[in-house]
């Protein structure tokens, strides 16, 4: 097991109402090396929070997360993160951004080669001297992906990396990510709202629910690759998961409405 999430609870202290606000409870996930795992779930169920905890940016309220049997105690370059919101350094150009995490850890030549390789992989070598604000949102996301990959982490944590992109770009990047994953033997934990995306990409789909946040389903996707988006089995699975999620989303919305109602 590369990553073990054991009985993890997370709650935040709500200062206004003076109560613990639970995000999720008793989350158990084990991920093997080279596995591509997707997490699906309604907004607010704690997907980003979970990734932050694996990244070591936040602490668990209860339970432990282990990487290679070692409990995680803080952030580190063995876990590469692609955030939901763009997190590139605006004063550096594209290439310098990719070099940022590796130039102190790798030898200069090695770092340069690594950066050049991943720049080409995400097809941004022509833009390597551009500054971040000169790029489109999709290009920025590609830089972030290349930066995380160039660190050569044991596990790649990706939080809705393609959410802001148009469908063509998104599908194109999905294919690229798969190619990288296969070629470089990566372990990937991938958060998405798109059931289709999860099914195209992953070996395994974890579905989370809300109120309280928890895992409601953990499905192995034993379909051969490359997968087709119109594949019959994918469509059947998509319907199944959609139904599962629909109940959860309805539940989440109902809670929001009733809260608003009470506050009004």
């Amino acid at each position: 097991m590369l990553l073990e999430i054991e009985h993890v609870n997370k709650s935040y202290w709500d200062d206004k109402q003076q109560v613990h606000f639970p995000v999720f409870s008793d989350v158990m996930i084990s991920i093997n090396e080279n596995q591509f795992v997707s997490i699906l779930g309604p907004s607010g169920c704690g997907k980003s929070t979970l990734l932050s905890m694996i990244a070591g940016l936040e602490e668990t309220t209860e339970g432990t997360i282990k990487l290679n049997r070692e409990p995680i105690s803080g952030p580190g370059p063995d876990r590469g993160m692609v955030f939901q919101q763009p997190s590139l350094l605006p004063w550096l150009n594209v290439k310098e951004n990719i070099l940022f995490p590796i130039k102190k850890r790798f030898k200069k030549k090695e770092a340069e080669e690594q950066a050049a390789y991943f720049l080409q992989l995400v097809q941004l070598d022509k833009f390597q001297h551009h500054y971040i604000h000169e790029l489109s949102g999709g290009m920025q996301q590609r830089v972030a992906i290349a930066r995380a990959l160039a660190m050569n982490p044991k596990i790649l944590l990706m939080d809705e990396p393609f959410a802001a992109l148009d469908e063509q770009t998104r599908e194109n990047l999905q294919d690229k990510l798969l190619a990288i994953w296969q070629k470089k033997k990566k372990t990937i934990l991938f958060v998405t709202h798109s059931i289709k995306e999860a099914l195209i990409l992953s070996d395994r789909v974890i579905v989370m629910g809300t109120n309280p946040g928890r895992i409601i389903s953990d499905v192995n996707i034993n379909l051969s690759r490359p997968r087709k988006r119109e594949d019959e089995q994918i469509i059947i699975l998509e319907k199944k998961i959609r139904k599962l999620l629909k109940n959860e989303v309805n539940k989440a919305l109902k809670d929001v409405w009733s809260n608003e109602f009470q506050n009004a």
Partner: peptide, 9 residues
Amino acid sequence: RAAKTMGVN
């Protein structure tokens, strides 16, 4: 946060 995940502390 991003920098920390890249081992910059």
